[in-house]
Simulated assay, not measured.
Amino acid sequence: MSLIFSSQPGARERHLKRQYQNVLFPQAQREFNEQRLSGARYMDEKEQEEFLQTFHSLLEQVAELKANEGSELMLELKSQLDQNYELCSGLMGEHQSEKDAIIKLVAVIMASIKQSAAGDPEAEHNLQEEELARNTHFQLLQCKRLTNSVLYLFQF
């Protein structure tokens, strides 16, 4: 029996695709039917819906920011945006517009934080290191093979 996998599957379907007729997995995991594949697709779709709800809620929070918000709130929102980028990278389908929006929002938030840290060499250095780490992380998430494996493992 040959199963037809989606062209842009979610994490669960990708994992089933890795298992399908792969001798590195136990026999029970290598053999499965259309029902198991449908279940994985359903869970991937549900995860995508949850992400979109969370993402839109986060966008509303960012839109409601006042000009003089404290660094703590800005850092928390930036952290949530970083997490959303990571989640978005593992979802089924293409979500480049969401990723681009997250990158732009993080850049705006970081510019505000950098402005607040101006004159503090240690803070400026830490922010530069964090930006480098974030950019590297985002680039690694573009590598689908890595994203597929790592994100699936950490979801459960």
Rank of each mutant, 00 (worst) to 15 (best):
L153R: 08
E64M: 11
T54D: 15
I102T: 01
F5P: 01
V23K: 09
K144E: 11
P26R: 10
Q128E: 12
E122W: 01
G90T: 08
Q48V: 03
K144L: 09
L24D: 13
I103V: 07
L75R: 13
L58R: 04
A101I: 01
S89R: 09
H137Q: 05
A107S: 15
R12D: 08
F25T: 01
L105N: 04
A28L: 06
R41M: 15
T136R: 12
R36C: 08
A123I: 00
Q21C: 08
D44W: 00
Y85F: 15
L87Q: 07
F154W: 06
Q61C: 08
Q83M: 09
E86K: 12
L73P: 03
E34F: 05
A111H: 08
A117Y: 04
L146N: 02
K144R: 09
M1P: 10
D44A: 02
K66R: 15
E13M: 06
V23T: 10
V150E: 00
V23A: 13
M110N: 10
Q128L: 07
E13T: 07
L127D: 07
I102M: 06
Q96T: 13
D120M: 05
A28N: 08
A107L: 05
E72M: 10
F25D: 04
S2W: 02
E131N: 12
R14P: 02
P26C: 07
L75F: 10
M43W: 12
E86R: 12
I113W: 03
A67D: 13
G90Y: 03
Q27H: 10
C143K: 10
E122Y: 05
S57R: 13
C88D: 04
K114M: 03
S7Y: 05
F156Q: 13
L16F: 07
Q48A: 14
Y85I: 06
Q142D: 15
L127N: 01
P121R: 01
P121Q: 07
Y152R: 05
I113L: 15
L132Q: 04
K78N: 12
A40H: 00
N135C: 06
Q27K: 14
T136L: 09
E49S: 15
L81M: 09
S6H: 07
Q142G: 14
K114Y: 02
E34L: 11
F51A: 03
H56S: 09
V62K: 08
Q53T: 15
N68F: 07
T147R: 03
L3Q: 06
Q53K: 15
Q139L: 02
